[in-house]
């Protein structure tokens, strides 16, 4: 049995999802020879630290009851710097302008030789090369499957399963919120504003939806894909982005009458990287509805491979974090 001492930085939806998944999958983890011992959890108000291992159930209950996991003041960065452990599970909320606390946490983790598994897109979309270099220099493992497509496997799929293939292009739906809004607009022949309101009510869209509907979230994911799969060095500011706010119900109907749906598609190939609403033939594998994500990977040897799955949700995203953790330490 290998014991991995881990901290969880950020205890929002994804962080809590990770705690739940670790609890739920204890037996599975034992079977693959892993004991993931969480020695610290932090959120914006403080942290809980227990070098013997935190009781995840009570941490989750306390978070639910009090709105914070904090028992002391130490921040995630202080924990990474001062508490001995192997793995930082970085699930703080994304900051697309500066990289935020997530970027500091990751760099500090590498600086002290810790491995990092993250769901936090911002730092990767801004400072991909810097982070990769820092992890290489310290010999740290760095995994980030959860940053793109939630539970839909794509980065590890391309890097591991499709290893040896040259990837010619990747295109797909990388944002479940936009997909939901466009799908519902078509189903109900309703305007954008109405279906945005519905998705906000259902918790699918944020109160400030611009990050999703303006295509920024898709652009960040596309940058991470482009950099990790194609070895490019894009920042999200390089992406040609058009969001979905101008799409009308009439345009969806006209498209439908001609055998198309309209989807917010991210596309990367050669030197082209863009996010825009596109006409997708109804019978295309990319024409998935609801909150689903989908990606078609065009390769030289395997032809086109298409994957689809749930792109968001705390447990779904946590599942991608778990799979990264297992793939680092299993052997």
């Amino acid at each position: 049995m290998k014991t991995i001492r881990a901290s969880i930085s950020g205890f929002g939806a994804v962080g809590q999802g990770v705690a739940e998944v670790l609890l739920k999958k204890q037996d599975y983890l034992k079977n693959v020879g892993l004991d993931i011992k969480v020695i610290a959890i932090s959120d914006s108000k403080g942290s809980e630290i227990n070098t013997d291992g935190i009781d995840l159930s009570s941490a989750l209950a306390r978070k639910l009851e009090k709105g914070t996991v904090a028992l002391e003041d130490k921040s995630s960065l202080e924990i990474i710097e001062s508490v001995d452990h192997d793995l930082v599970i970085e699930t703080t909320s994304t900051d697309i302008n500066t990289g935020g606390i997530g970027l500091k946490n990751m760099l500090s983790a590498f600086n002290s030789g810790k491995d990092v598994v993250t769901s936090n897109k911002g730092p990767l979309a801004l400072k991909y090369n810097e982070l990769m270099e820092a992890s290489r220099n310290s010999g740290s493992n760095f995994r980030f499957e959860a940053t793109v497509g939630g539970a839909m496997p794509i980065i590890n799929l391309i890097k591991d399963v499709l290893a040896g293939n040259d990837v010619i292009s990747v295109e797909g739906i990388l944002n479940g919120t936009c997909n939901y809004i466009l799908t519902r607009m078509m189903e109900e022949n309703a305007p954008y504003e109405q279906m945005l309101a519905e998705s906000q009510e259902l918790g699918i869209a944020e109160t400030d939806p611009s990050y999703d509907v303006d295509g920024i979230d898709s652009a960040c994911k596309l940058v991470i894909l482009a950099n990790s799969v194609f070895g490019m060095c894009f920042s999200y500011k390089d992406v040609d982005v058009t969001g979905i706010t101008k799409i009308t119900p009439e345009s969806l109907l006209l498209a439908q009458n001609n055998g198309y749906v309209i989807k917010l598609i991210g596309e990367v190939k050669d030197d082209l990287i863009r996010v825009a609403p596109r006409l997708v033939p109804e019978d295309s594998p990319l024409a998935v509805g609801g909150t689903l994500n989908v990606a078609s990977i065009q390769t030289d040897l395997s032809g086109t491979v298409t994957v689809t799955g749930r792109g968001a949700g705390s447990i779904e995203t946590a599942s991608a974090v778990l799979s990264d953790i297992v793939s680092i330490y299993r052997d």
Partner: peptide, 9 residues
């Protein structure tokens, strides 16, 4: 005007 183009198939 917004142009919605088809994906390449």
């Amino acid at each position: 005007l917004l142009v919605v183009e088809p994906i390449e198939t």
